[in-house]
Design a protein around this nucleic acid. Structure first.
Length: 404
RNA sequence: GGGUCGAUACUCAAGCGGUCAACGAGGGCAGACUGUAAAUCUGCUGGCAUUAGCCUACGUAGGUUCAAGUCCUACUCGGCCCA
């Protein structure tokens, strides 16, 4: 359940509360990525400590290893990883996209998309899996997550209109089936989010959204009885989807194209539902998207780039964010592996609330990377996650103050 | 003392007369990374010019050859074997 608390007067940004089985989340927010049930190198305890509100995990990966029935046996994903806050799982839709590019040793694609679902070949042991909209949701329910996402096809943004149209129709059909399965499910169930696709094509994006809105209400024969109908998706309705994901962005197109897509798409998404821009992004991407009315984000950047030696840092710890400023003006990055850092005695991050980041020098962190000591990757990840969490907190504060 | 094998760029290591500034790996330097098959991937790595090209290099010194890291001789150093 989602409630908007405040709409900005300066931009489309808004402040809200998303209520889940494991607690309330202040929007807009960022989900640290714990694909395989762990934020790489970081404990759940530390995630709590830095103020993370929710984590993102992945249906496909957990299904392959360690397996959802195992996780269920271990008391559910929350207990297993010692995280008692909300968890959202991605459906496996992105893996259809990312694994489709890969081949096994025999040159076979690891993924085959069919009408009823997706045939996966496990990269772990080569075993075949057939994932359907229903089975993906069932896995997510078994994992015990708070927010589930419908299985979708994340087509490359330049797929060509014909392919893209077929693809969004497939995603819509899968959404219908997921929704029906969700409604039939007895007992505790997660919130259910659908995924808007359509690449950069305005018509297809809006068609995808309209069809999904419709499906959200009609999957099990419900009728949208309230006034407004499809022409007025802003009307507040009960039922339907708990949130709308914007998929298929940041998959190769330019930032400009992504922002333009948000410009025409976000205003059409029902305003009483969360809008989740999947997989995004760099701080400036998030900044721009919040301005356009997006509420949720996730991205591997802080952890992955951290592991690869890049630190995200505030330019000015005291500065307030402001929607009029340049989107990348508030932060900088330091490539800790660069040779010049070897003599940099400055603390890794003097403003951090983590003592090791305040006390250890950049030179030392540089050295840890040089000797490939995992502690280096861990400290950098910690730093970057703290930056992202802090950035969202500041954005919320700025919206509250009327400056965003 | 005799025999034998070796000595290649920062390191290890290919190379067996021309296509060798020299395979490959490590190291070094730089870059990429956006719903994580990602502690991964890419490029560069003798000098100067950086398009072309020129110079210096394969233990040292000579030699053979149109041409040598590659063949010959001596020397230096090292491994192994015999005394």
């Amino acid at each position: 359940m989602f409630k908007v608390l405040k709409n900005s007067k300066r931009s489309a940004a808004r402040l809200g509360i998303l209520d889940t089985a494991h607690g309330k989340i202040k929007t807009p927010f960022f989900m640290p990525v714990a694909t395989q049930g762990t934020v790489k190198h970081i404990t759940a305890e530390e995630m709590r400590g830095m103020g993370a509100q929710i984590l993102l995990s992945n249906t496909y990966h957990l299904m392959l290893r360690p397996g959802e029935s195992y996780v269920k046996k271990m008391g559910g994903l929350h207990k297993f990883m010692d995280w008692n806050g909300p968890i959202l799982t991605d459906s496996g839709g992105f893996q259809i996209f990312s694994l489709a590019k890969g081949r096994n040793r025999k040159g076979e694609s690891l993924v085959k998309i069919k009408k009823d679902g997706v045939e996966f070949k496990s990269f772990v042991d080569g075993r075949k899996y057939f994932m359907t909209p229903e089975s993906s949701l069932k896995v997510q329910i078994d994992l015990g997550v708070d927010i589930a996402v419908c299985l979708d096809e994340c087509a490359p943004s330049r797929s060509g209109r014909e392919y893209m149209e077929k693809s969004i129709n497939l995603t819509t059909e899968w959404a219908r089936r997921a929704k029906r399965h969700h409604e039939k499910h007895k007992g505790k169930k997660p919130l259910l989010f659908c995924v808007i696709q359509g690449g950069l094509d305005k018509e297809l994006r809006l068609k995808s959204l309209r069809d999904l809105i419709e499906v959200g209400f009609s999957a099990s024969g419900q009728r949208r009885t309230q006034r407004g109908g499809l022409a007025s998706p802003r009307s507040s309705l009960t039922g339907g989807w708990d949130g709308y994901n914007i998929g298929g962005l940041a998959v190769g197109e330019t930032n400009k194209e992504m922002y333009e897509t948000l410009d025409f798409l976000v205003p059409e998404i029902p305003e009483d539902k969360t809008r989740y821009l999947m997989g995004v992004g760099y701080p400036e991407n998030i900044f721009e998207a919040v301005k356009r009315g997006v509420d949720m984000f996730d991205c591997v950047i802080p952890t992955r780039e951290g592991r690869h030696g890049r630190l995200f840092l505030w330019k000015n710890k005291k500065e307030f964010l402001n929607s009029k400023q340049k989107a990348d003006s508030f932060y900088k990055t330091v490539t800790i592996t660069n040779a010049k850092i070897a003599s940099d005695k400055a603390p890794i991050n003097k403003d951090s609330k983590f003592a090791p980041l305040r006390n250890l020098s950049r030179a030392y962190l540089h050295y840890l990377f040089k000797i490939k000591e995992p502690l280096g990757a861990r400290l950098a990840s910690l730093n970057n996650l703290e930056f992202y969490i802090d950035m969202m907190e500041r954005i919320r504060y700025s919206i509250q103050r009327g400056e965003f």
